[in-house]
């Protein structure tokens, strides 16, 4: 259920005002409503109705079957904000964001700079850098769990050359969040790479030439030219990455189940646990609404940033 996705940015593909003159406008009758009907039914049933229902459930206690038993007003909200587990899950989500988003951006930036060079066969490299976006979180996690295996895994093998031995990637409280973050960075670099490469391609070569004449080396050129010119894309990607990170569930459910010792119990995992294991649907619904509000803020920022991109030049 990942509806908030970066392609939302397609909005800028075409500037409406350029096109309006070309387009035919059929007159008002029943036909357009018929065309909208299938989508309207789906949205009403599986987006708007469940949204209202979630708000409604969040005001009730439920029995283990999920049937509403007692109206409690905002009590569920009060309860979750008094619960150390829930507050911890917010903290862990923020920690997860800090451990993934900057790294995703930095790695993608490095990859896109190298993939933007004029080299024969660079297309192959670009395909490889983008490839992880096609990989599901489930298969990625299963593969990485083998790499993280404490006794025969490849990562501990490599580390043993540096005198580091026997790290319990998935069992040690210190490393659970790190392992989950590594898999997520690997999965999400591709989407950042695509946007950054496109951003780099659109930067005029003249800028670099004049910087070269002024004697700036490649590193300085990237700091002084690339990053500022790319900043609208970077800001947009930060919001995309934040939204994705808030929604993290798959890797954690397969790899750590929120553990070891609750150290990866992020917000969506906490919703899942409260609703589908503890059968506290009311609490789960209240947590869902809090998640929605947080994500709404970032989605609005994302829209604002894609607007900004249009008017940047």
């Amino acid at each position: 259920m990942e509806r908030t996705e970066p392609i939302a940015n397609y909005s800028n593909a075409i500037d409406d005002s350029d096109v309006k003159n070309n387009v035919i406008r059929f007159k008002n009758d029943i036909e357009p409503y018929l065309y909208l009907f299938p989508s309207a039914i789906i949205f009403a049933t599986f987006v708007f109705y469940p949204f209202v229902k979630t708000v409604y459930i969040s005001l009730f206690l439920t029995d283990p079957q999920g049937y509403l038993s007692k109206f409690v007003g905002l009590q569920n909200y009060i309860d979750i904000f008094k619960s150390a587990d829930y507050l911890n899950s917010i903290y862990l989500t923020l920690k997860f964001i800090i451990m993934t988003v900057p790294l995703e951006m930095i790695v993608a930036f490095i990859l896109s700079v190298f993939a933007n060079l004029k080299l024969k066969g660079i297309e192959v490299v670009r395909t490889i850098y983008t490839l992880p976006i096609a990989i599901s979180s489930a298969s990625a996690t299963v593969i990485w769990m083998l790499l993280f295996n404490p006794s025969i895994g490849f990562i501990n093998y490599i580390l043993s050359f540096f005198g580091i031995h026997g790290i319990g990637w998935l069992t040690d409280v210190k490393y659970g969040m790190i392992s989950v973050s590594i898999v997520n960075v690997w999965l999400n670099v591709g989407i950042n790479f695509i946007f950054m490469l496109a951003g780099l391609k659109s930067i005029s070569k003249d800028l670099y030439e004049s910087a070269q004449i002024d004697g700036a080396n490649v590193f300085v050129q990237h700091i002084k030219i690339t990053i500022p010119m790319l900043s609208p894309t970077l800001f947009f990607l930060i919001t995309v990455d934040f939204i994705n990170a808030f929604q993290e569930f798959g890797v954690i459910n397969i790899m750590t189940q929120g553990g070891p010792v609750n150290s990866t119990n992020v917000m969506v995992y906490s919703i899942y646990r409260d609703a589908f294991f503890n059968f506290r649907y009311g609490n789960g619904a209240a947590e869902s609404i809090i998640l929605f509000i947080l994500l709404l803020i970032f989605t609005l920022l994302q829209f604002a940033s894609s607007e900004k991109k249009v008017f940047y030049k």
């Binding site: 949205f43 987006v47 109705y49 229902k53 979630t54 459930i57 999920g66 869902s288 998640l291």
Partner: peptide
């Protein structure tokens, strides 16, 4: 207004309505 309503579905993440959808 219908266009805006349709687009607003992108602002409701699947995870936030998954309990209600499951119950439905």
């Amino acid at each position: 207004i219908i266009f805006a309503i349709f687009l607003s579905t992108m602002m409701i993440p699947g995870e936030a309505i998954i309990i209600a959808n499951y119950l439905t």
